Amino acid sequence: MSTRGTKPETMKALVAYNKEKYVFETAYPTPECGSDDIIIKTEACGVCASDLKCSHGAAMYWGDDIQPAWVKPPVIPGHEFFGKIVEMGENVKGYELGERIIADQIVPCGECRFCKDGHYWMCQPHNIFGFQKENNGGMAEYVKFPKTAVISRVPEEMSIEKALLIEPYGCSKHAVDRGNITNEDVVVISGAGTLGLGMVTYARMKNPRRLIVLDMVEARLNKAKEFGADLVFNPGTVDVVKEIQDLTDGYGCDVYIEATGHPSSVVQGLSMVRKLGRFVEFSVFGEPTTVDWSIIGDRKELDILGSHLSPYAYPFVIENMENGNLKTDGVVSRKFAIEEWEKAFEYASGKYGDFKVALVF
C-alpha cells in the first residue's frame, strides 16, 4: 500500500520523441509509484547545456556511426530539479509526504563494481534523469525517484533560486576537489558560467594563494570577482598565458580547471600550467580537441584529472548555500513556465547574457 497525496492521472511535460521532435504535452501520463519509489511534484528545473546539446541532436546523446545512442525516447528532459513528495511506495522508509527533496542526477544501478565500491557516480549502465524513458527528468509536473536514487533533503526555507543551483554547484565542488587545492596554490578557472561560478565560490573557501578566472564575457568576469576571484582576465583582449607566467615568476599556475568546453581553453591551459601541475577537465565538448601530448608527459609531467557529476556533494552544498559561504546571488537570471520551454532553451544558450535559466511549476 503506497502513501498517497493528491496526484492527477496526467500532467504537463516536455517530451523528446527523437532528436527532431520535442513536444510540450498537456496530458502526459503521470508516473506510477512502485513499492520502492517516491513521486515528487516538481517545483523547478534548471536548463543545462547538456539539455541544449541533446535537443540539438548531438551524437553523444543520439548516437552516430561510431557511438550508440544513449538517449532512450520518449523521455522527459531535465536533471537539475527538485520538489515535494506527493506519493511513496510501501517499502519507502524515513520520508514523509510534503518533504522537499532532490536527487543526484545519476540513477545508479547498485550492482556494478563502481556502485559496490562506493563510486556510484561512475555506475557502468550510467543512467541519468532526463535521458532514458525509465528515468524521466524534471521538465514535467511530477517525477519518479526509483529505489536507487541518491536523495538529499532541501530545507523548506531555501529559495528556489538557491535550490536550482544545488546540482550545478555539486558538480563544481567535485571538480575543485579533484584539483586538491592548497593555500599555496595559484589556481586558474577557465570559464565563468554557472558551473565556473560555482567553482569560484567554492575554491575561495580553499583559500588559494591566488584565484584567477578567465572568460570572454565581461559580465561573467565581474560576477567572478564578486564571488571571490582575486584577478580576472579576458583571453580575447590580453595574452592570458603571459599574464599568468608574469604573476608566477615564469613558472605557471599550480592548478588549471577547464570549464568552457572549448578546445582553445585546453591548449591554453596546457601552456599555462607549471611543470608537475594539475589540470582538471570538467567540460563536455562539442568537437574533438587536438593537443601536443608531449607537453603532458615529456615536457611537464602533468597530472591530468577528469571530473564527472557531483558525488557526495549535495549535503555540503546545501549547508554552505544556507550559511552564505557559497555565493548564489544573480546566478539564476530568468525563469519560465513549462509552456515557454522553447524560449527558456533559447535564453539558456547564453546569447542574451544569462547564467542559469529555469522552468518553474
Rank of each mutant, 00 (worst) to 15 (best):
W293Q: 12
E32V: 12
A16T: 11
L247K: 04
Q124V: 09
T328C: 14
V291Q: 08
L276E: 09
S152P: 05
F114M: 12
V143G: 01
G330W: 03
P31I: 10
H119V: 03
I106E: 00
E43R: 05
K116H: 13
T30R: 00
K144T: 07
V267P: 02
T248Q: 05
D303K: 07
R209M: 09
K7M: 14
N222T: 15
H126A: 15
Q105Y: 03
A259L: 05
I85G: 10
V107A: 07
S35P: 07
P8V: 10
I101G: 08
Y120L: 08
T182Y: 00
G179L: 08
V267H: 00
H56N: 08
C171A: 07
V188L: 06
K351Y: 01
F361W: 04
Y314F: 14
E141L: 03
P73G: 08
V188S: 03
V47G: 02
E161W: 02
G170Q: 05
E258H: 10
D117Y: 11
V238P: 05
G277R: 06
S152G: 05
S2K: 13
R204W: 05
F233R: 04
P74C: 09
A27S: 15
S152H: 01
I128R: 06
G350I: 02
H262T: 08
W121H: 13
S50E: 03
G252S: 06
E25F: 01
K300T: 13
E301W: 07
A219Q: 12
I212H: 01
G98Q: 02
F345G: 12
W341V: 15
F285W: 11
R4L: 13
V71N: 03
P108G: 06
L164I: 05
R153F: 07
G277C: 03
G306N: 09
V15D: 11
